[in-house]
Design a protein around this nucleic acid. Structure first.
Length: 440
DNA sequence: CTGGGGAGGGGGCCC
DNA sequence: GGGGCCCCCTCCCCA
């Protein structure tokens, strides 16, 4: 026999105990404000606390204290209220900081809700939403919550390793003495967190990891991806009514715009970036990257969303940035080195072809091509297909091929002065499949 | 095994 | 705000 109200009642009781400071065995100090809580509850709700308390599980006799300085008491209030009630009070003003705090505290549910909240307000995310929420492998948890696919895939792929570099022992102040008192949370701008990856780009994992570790920063830094992975591995006890949450989020969205500006108020700026003067900052909701310009954030976000709106008209390979497409086109399709890779003789497009081998493209003269074998797929044939039938999502006239440009790739190659034809398209599923082999 | 080069990708920043 | 350039990094391939 099961009493359905038991869980909520229990949580209410715990929340009441917290308010009255009854049996609270944990103090969290956030910018001078002390929050009382129960270790058990924190342990069960946050991967961060779980690990910290696990490290100090033998020291249960002493009340513990944690100190955070990067997020505000208000933010932690939202977090703590969620822990004890399952209700997350998100607004356009606090969502970034709540998400940042949640990512540090490894609270997956909160992150997901924040992510959805932000995503729904992002103009660039419209088509991405379609992709992630309808086309890609949906990840629906027990509450019916949808997770963006790249998050879930990342977690699943690497769910085995406990985060190696997020250890309380490596903490900023370290875990002092018997407990984790003085365990400080570094400002977001100083953290090196792992960025969630686009699902198709697993290789970047190692790239970014190495890069970020090298660039940074204190070793105690929480790895964003691995943190979430860890949290997911743990059985999170923090539940949230998604329908309620969605309704709340919708209400929030209706109430006002959600900006990415991080630190509109000097309070936020000075808190999160203590070394900086109060100025406009744009913080990535997926990682701790901070940029000065909104356009740069928009560009940066593509590395998280996997959006590649710039397909190469010659080979179909897609790029997240126009300048990368231009660079690709110059180096690959406007080949300056008109020499046969094999015999090193000068070769034109009449006497040879551009051959693709894996990600490499090079020229071979017809003779060497015959020696190598007919099986080598001339890239030109493939490219011709693309040029002859531009992508369907060509909604913007400025991306359209001009009459002069709208000729076969063979023609273009023959004159040796191929012009870059740029076309911005939607990321439809079909196209995604079509070009997938080209995306590494 | 190693070093060099090609290619892709991300960030900063100027125009 | 977008385009574009520069710089840097990593991965991959090849000699």
């Amino acid at each position: 026999m099961e009493i359905s109200s038991h869980q909520s009642h229990l949580l209410e009781q715990l929340n009441e105990q917290r308010r009255q400071d009854v049996f609270c065995d944990c103090s969290i100090l956030v910018e001078g404000k002390v929050f009382k809580a129960h270790r058990n509850v924190l342990f069960a709700s946050s991967g961060y606390f779980k690990m910290l308390l696990s490290q100090n599980s033998k020291e249960t006799s002493q009340p513990t204290t944690a100190t955070f300085q990067a997020f505000s008491p208000d933010t932690f209030t939202v977090i703590l209220d969620f822990v004890y009630s399952g209700k997350l009070s998100l607004t356009g003003q606090n969502v970034i900081e709540v998400m940042s705090a949640a990512s540090f505290l490894q609270m997956t549910d909160v992150i997901d809700v924040c992510k959805t909240f932000i995503k729904s307000s992002l103009d660039i995310s419209e088509k991405e939403k379609d992709r992630y929420f309808s086309l890609s492998d949906k990840d629906v948890n027990s509450n019916g919550t949808e997770h963006s696919s790249f998050y879930s895939s990342s977690w699943q792929e690497e769910s085995s390793s406990p985060h190696p570099h997020l250890s309380p022992d490596q903490g900023t102040g370290g875990v002092s003495g018997k407990s984790w008192s003085k365990y400080n949370y570094h400002p977001a701008s100083q953290r090196s967190t792992q960025q969630p990856l686009a699902k198709h780009d697993q290789r970047k994992d190692s790239i970014k990891k190495t890069k970020h570790l090298r660039l940074s920063q204190p070793p105690e830094v929480a790895n964003f991806k691995s943190s979430k992975r860890e949290v997911r591995t743990y059985e999170s006890s923090s539940h949230i009514s998604q329908s309620e949450e969605q309704a709340q989020m919708d209400a929030e969205m209706d109430s006002g715009p959600v900006g990415y500006q991080y630190g509109q108020g000097s309070d936020v700026t000075s808190r999160s970036f203590p070394d900086d003067h109060p100025r406009m900052q744009f913080k990535c909701p997926y990682c701790t990257h901070v940029v000065k310009r909104k356009a740069d954030l928009k560009r940066h976000l593509r590395c998280h969303t996997g959006e590649r709106p710039y397909p190469c008209q010659a080979c179909g390979k897609r790029f997240s940035r126009l300048d990368h497409l231009s660079s690709h086109f110059r180096t690959i399709h406007q080949a300056y080195k008109l020499i046969c890779r094999k015999c090193k003789r000068h070769v034109t497009d009449l006497t040879g072809q551009v051959v693709q081998e894996g990600t490499r493209r090079y020229r071979l003269c017809n003779e060497c091509l015959a020696e190598v074998g007919i099986d080598s797929l001339p890239i030109d044939l493939e490219a011709e297909q693309h040029l002859m039938s531009p992508a369907d999502g060509d909604k913007d006239s400025r991306w359209r091929l001009s009459e002069d440009e709208n000729r076969s790739y063979v023609e273009i190659v023959e004159d040796g002065s191929t012009d870059l034809v740029i076309q911005q398209v939607d990321d439809s599923e079909e196209e995604e499949k079509e070009i997938k082999p080209n995306i590494r």
